[in-house]
Design a protein around this nucleic acid. Structure first.
Length: 578
RNA sequence: GCGCCCGUAGCUCAAUCGGAUAGAGCACUGGCCUUCUAAGCCAGAUGUUGCAGGUUCGAGUCCUGCCGGGCGCGCCA
């Protein structure tokens, strides 16, 4: 609907020679928006004020000539000039009726844009380290990422969802030794669990399930040969000791089984949360497939690397980073940053045009250097987009909870899901802008779940389903074509409001997708549910008038479809009964 | 110290490349179930948009400075 208005407007402006050189002409489409006040009509544009700047003429005069040049259309009842030069469009009832018929025809596909082949988008999110179960902070990333993926698809983009598994490096050794020590403990050996190890209870559960033979290892030998030092040196000593006493292969198997156990748990948790990935990308595979070397070779070829203090540096500062970064350490080991460059390089090499990373706000410092990496390899700086998600602070009974994986003291996503339910959790997580901090009070979410806005929206959906059940009980039939033919009878204020809201849905999808802002959809659904509830209370749907009854049923049927579609994008169920 | 993000009603938050009178929920008060689910509806109050300047037809939104909060500034991952 908005699109049609924009096309008419663009035709009008292009037909006027005095604006042919104005730069604003390219963005006419984007200036058309819904009015906030129905007295201003249904759609408005500020294009006259924008043109006034570059052409140097009175905006109201410009508006006048634009209106005069606008082709006649059955879509529009009247066009008015208001205020400093707004052009307001009043849409005809017939046009709303026609659009409502579209909603019914498309059902839950209404508002979805046709698929476009470019750009191909890779959406990476969660990517939590596989060293423990997901906690409530990851839940926000999962909900936001999954919803954004759905939104982008609804807006017509081709999106692949990817989880980057940090299965390489020191943290895997720490995981391995943590599990091994719990195995020794379970066997009856006396151990002193290191401060830097993963202390969570889940480590004991993993240890209990591992069948690797560790009879070669004696706890007293292991602890007897520990170096003096801080907690990092102590755990390094334990890892080295275990590898030499038990064997590198044996320790490697324990490490791998621990990783698989945790990864299985994460996958199960996420799929249970309705969050699915197209690919789980292993960091270790970067090394195995020589991708890091390939990426470094590209950088070297482009003269982006140099040697200093025995290390290899990347000229990140040449591309906007605050300083150059090490990619190969003095000891010959590649840095994590080298993996990151290679990973993002690989994403582009796999054919993705646009990369979206959803990261915690504590990672903001790393954006510039990864972007520098891509840029230095010849990719456009804006092919990498990073959406930062602010922290979740969890409160239980008004008390702040700690969230440290290493200490093992945290509330898991699984616990949260069990306590408040998937629907409420998915909804709450995307209710507010991702750049706002989120306070999540468990007790509040549980004890007041009836006041949860998600139920308000679900209830609207269930109410419509209930009306259709009542219809069947009265042995009446819903005749949709007859209803569509009788849309002229929908003249009540509540009906007009509902129709207007329904036809906004495609615009909301576009808005929420383009701004990476699912909360737009959440607020829209709340408003739509409100329209339905108000209508429900003000008017009877199952009335004697055959035509009016079917017209009203068609209207709420369309509403049901849009609510179901919107909730589906957020990952929330649309129940027929509550 | 430098960098990024945030600051809007009592509380939690919205506000569509800058747009018309800054909006919702919660909480509070009163009213509405013999008719399709009262997890609902209707009516009612609240703002120096942290502070001070600037840009312009127009600023919560953009720019500068300051105040307050969060996060980040490794040859860690």
């Amino acid at each position: 609907m908005k699109n049609e208005i924009a096309i008419l407007l663009e035709q009008a402006i292009r037909s006027l020679p005095e604006f042919s050189d104005a730069p604003e002409i390219a963005s006419v489409h984007a200036t058309v928006e819904r009015t906030r006040d129905s007295r201003h009509g249904d759609f408005t544009t500020n294009i006259a004020m924008r043109l006034a700047k570059s052409v140097g003429r009175n905006p109201r005069e410009i508006a006048q000539s634009v209106i005069a040049a606008t082709p006649g259309s059955e879509l529009i009842d009247k066009i008015e000039i208001a205020g400093p030069g707004f052009i307001n469009f009043h849409v005809s009832p017939a046009a709303f009726n026609r659009e409502l018929a579209h909603v019914l025809r498309d059902g839950e596909n209404y508002g979805r844009q046709a698929t476009r082949t470019t750009p191909r988008i890779l959406l990476e999110f969660v990517s939590a380290n596989p060293t423990g179960p997901l906690h409530v902070g990851h839940g926000r990333h999962a909900s936001y990422g999954a919803t954004l993926g759905n939104l982008l698809e609804a807006a017509g983009y081709v999106v692949d969802r990817e989880y980057y598994v940090n299965d390489a490096g020191r943290q895997m050794d720490i995981l391995g030794i943590s599990v091994l020590l719990r195995m020794l403990e379970a066997r009856g050996d006396t151990i002193q669990f290191p401060e830097a190890g993963y202390k969570g209870e889940y480590i004991r559960e993993i240890a209990a399930a591992i069948t690797e033979d560790i009879s070669k290892l004696v706890a007293s030998d292991l602890f007897g040969n520990l170096p003096e030092g801080d907690k990092e040196e102590i755990i390094s000593g334990l890892i080295e000791g275990a590898e030499s006493m038990l064997g590198t292969d044996e320790f490697g198997r324990i490490r791998r089984q621990s990783l698989e156990s945790i990864l299985d748990d994460i996958k199960d948790d996420l799929s249970g949360f309705g969050v699915v990935f197209d690919r789980w990308f292993s960091e270790q595979s970067l090394t195995d497939d020589n991708l890091i070397d390939d990426a470094l070779a590209v950088l070297k070829k482009r003269n982006m690397l140099y040697q200093k203090d025995g290390a290899t540096w990347f000229r990140a500062a040449d591309f906007g980073d605050e300083k150059d970064r090490v990619v190969v350490r003095e000891n010959g080991k590649k840095t994590y940053f080298a993996s990151d460059i290679a990973y993002h390089y690989g994403k582009r090499e796999r054919g993705y045009d646009h990369l979206i990373d959803i990261l915690g706000s504590d990672h903001h410092g790393y954006i510039a250097r990864v972007r520098a990496g891509l840029q230095s390899m010849g990719y456009a700086a804006d092919c990498l987009e990073v959406e930062l998600v602010q922290f979740v602070t969890l409160y239980r009974a008004g008390e702040k909870m700690q969230m440290s994986t290493r200490s093992g003291e945290f509330v898991t996503l699984r616990q949260l899901r069990e306590e408040v339910g998937n629907d409420a959790a998915r909804f709450f997580y995307v209710m507010r802008s991702n750049d706002q901090h989120l306070d999540f009070d468990m007790e509040l979410a549980k004890s007041r779940s009836n006041e949860n806005p998600v139920y308000y929206i679900q209830y609207a959906h269930a109410r419509v389903a209930s009306v259709f059940r009542q219809l069947a009980e009265k042995s009446l039939e819903y005749e949709q074509p007859r209803g569509v033919a009788a849309f002229d009878k929908l003249t009540e204020t509540h009906e007009k409001a509902l129709m207007s809201s329904l036809t906004r849905y495609p615009e909301i999808i576009e808005l929420a997708a383009n701004n990476r802002a699912p909360q737009h959809l959440v607020h829209y659904l709340r408003d739509l549910a409100n329209d339905l509830h108000s209508y429900y209370n003000a008017h009877q749907f199952i009335v004697d008038d055959h035509d009016l009854r079917n017209a009203r049923l068609a209207l709420i049927d369309a509403t049901r479809a849009v609510i179901a579609s919107g909730l589906g994008i957020i990952g929330v169920s649309a129940p027929d009964a509550m």
